[in-house]
Design a protein around this nucleic acid. Structure first.
Lengths: 215, 215, 215, 215
DNA sequence: AATGAATGAGTCTTCATTCAT
DNA sequence: AATGAATGAAGACTCATTCAT
């Protein structure tokens, strides 16, 4: 045990939550949300079903009504997170932008804005516990590659249209966004202490893209 | 048990290991090495003292002769890893290089070569379990910042000497190396499957630095 | 293991005990009863949760459903034993007795009768392990003192009414009952072998009180 | 674990005690002394060989050079304590006193003075752990009885000589000293908090003996 | 669907004891 | 005689999972 835990015990004060009957879908979602918080906070092994149940406000036993094992919760969670392609969503809009500088600004802002606590939690879980779900990782990688290809195609178009200057970066545009991962890792490791650094990084990033892509 | 276990059963071909008596320093080192492997493989909570002991080839009890708790092993391990500044070591040599293109090639090669399995293990542990040792993280961050400052000074010198072209990158040189972290994360998450991608990234990285720094 | 153990081996004639579900109150009581026996027999440290669980006929784990630690069992046990004031209960009745000789006989008989195996167990635990629960000891001592004061008051009344002869004993009546503690200790140390001795003691005690208190 | 323990570890500051070679007799005595302190403080099971070794200032291993097991230490200790007959020792002198009041005063003072911390430690151990050494207990009881017989004979002589008043107490003189055991138990359970009470008891005890024995 | 008592297989840690030095 | 590294057998406590209600 690393830290002390407050004893639970029904406790006077926390009115014994009466049985609330919810539809399976709702409960499952509640459980997955709680699991995301706990798994990314302490990791899979250090998270107990009791913690998840408590966060949802239900009994341990009830968790097993909705999932057959802790592992299943984890897998379902990661699978449901395949919708991480939010950043990609933005792309469809960005593609249409005629103005390259505006596109770059949008891209930078959107990318760094995507480093939400939830996204960081997912990244931490992926790095820390991804090995538990190799199948899902493979799927992600594929999705990643195809998304990347689409974005590359969009860039190629811009270059062909003479709106972007060709260079190593337009030839391998995915590389242009790697600093965002650095920013994410910095926040994962150093937390708030990294905020200032990340901001400075973002501006350097922005300037470089402008310098390198502007035709 | 989340992961598979294999040979356990006290015996099964392994002759009753004779008592081997080693000096505390040697045993401690052995234990720390085993711990690094196990912790980075499964994480702190999912690693049992039994696994570490088995990897070293000693009894569980003996682990406690050398460390007073699992936690102490972890902390000692991370502390002993403060020597991660290998990359920085290279720098002193790089500084002296008069030839900027050679400097860049050295930098790129050294940086990506530093992504050894051991270094990756440390990174994974830091991301996954760093919160267990806030004190050590703070120390690392400081060391990081001062190392970064030194490197920046070296770059500034080159710029002042007219050997490097000034730009957003020379003003904030740390940023130039962030793709290496992406490469590390890619390997952590996708393993060997990321190798090809990382190689391509490395070459793009190299080209960009040449383009941006060459005066 | 200092003492002998006996039947353990999960099975050996004891059919796989069916899950018996009981209310927490009942189980807690069962556990406390078993704990009293075991703690007073071997002491706190030498008693294992397994012994207690086995005596109750439940699994070790179940003990922790009802108590959060071995220590809590011990404390709860001693606290619940604060009702040791049985002897005092008798007093209310004795006070009303008009007849001093009868009062003395009742007192002696009740006092020695209170040396039940359970009471002896409590005494042993108190002597051997009382230091673990200083708070409870303090409470006991207070209760003791107030009980003692009440009894002294009753005696004072008898003396004032001329029904008892004044003397060092009536001035400090608590002292009159100290031989009972000797009897208790004798039984604790020598067990049944002390029975005869205790009986003789009891009669001497009775005679002396008659001699000293009869006006 | 009830209380926290300071980590040992060779520790800088406590100069690594150099090997001191002592004769077996001396070491055995040292170990037994340390064992008495520790056993009576925490009980047999809660006392570790390490604690005893540390108190003596030797290594755990060395303890086993002098005793073959923890149990043997305990048994040897209790056996060596058979010399508890210090109080009896006094008797030989008291017998010779011609003056009954002086005899009584001596008896009271000597008896209560015998409640040294060491004697209390022995009593606690006997009550708490006596069952571990039934053989020794039996021996003690015998010794006790014969000592008691001697003292009774001395009293009988005094009575026959008309120097003491006959009564239930002279007929069963052992009973006269039972309050001392109460005093001992009070100290064991309540520690210093019982001191005042014990003093008062002692004086009542003295007065009563004077009253009952004075012819 | 929900609860929570019950279980059993671990997990960390301690400790009496052994043994090479 | 002395040391201290090494071991193996517990022991307290945790937790995923089951099941009667």
């Amino acid at each position: 045990m690393t830290a002390k835990k407050a004893k639970k015990k029904p406790q006077a004060g926390s009115e014994t939550r009466k049985r609330t009957r919810l539809s399976p879908e709702v409960r499952r979602k509640q459980i997955l949300e709680a699991a995301l918080v706990e798994f990314s906070r302490q990791g899979f092994a250090a998270t107990s079903i009791a913690m998840i149940a408590e966060r949802v406000g239900i009994s341990k036993g009830n968790v097993y009504v909705h999932f057959s094992s802790k592992n299943e919760i984890f897998e379902t969670l990661l699978e449901s997170l395949s919708s991480v392609g939010k950043a990609q969503g933005n792309w469809s809009r960005l593609e249409t932008a005629q103005d390259v500088p505006a596109f770059i600004d949008n891209l930078i802002d959107a990318s760094y804005a995507s480093l939400t606590p939830e996204a960081l939690a997912v990244l931490r879980m992926t790095i820390a516990e991804g090995h538990r779900v190799p199948g899902i990782l493979a799927k992600w990688q594929e999705a990643n590659l195809s998304g990347r290809a689409n974005r590359q195609a969009a860039i190629d178009e811009q270059v062909a249209a003479g709106r972007m200057k060709r260079g190593p970066l337009t030839d391998h545009f995915h590389f242009a966004m790697t600093p965002v991962v650095y920013a994410a890792v910095a926040r994962l490791v150093f937390g708030e202490a990294a905020a200032e650094d990340v901001d400075r990084m973002k501006e350097t990033h922005r300037k470089l893209l402008h310098q390198l892509l502007r035709s």
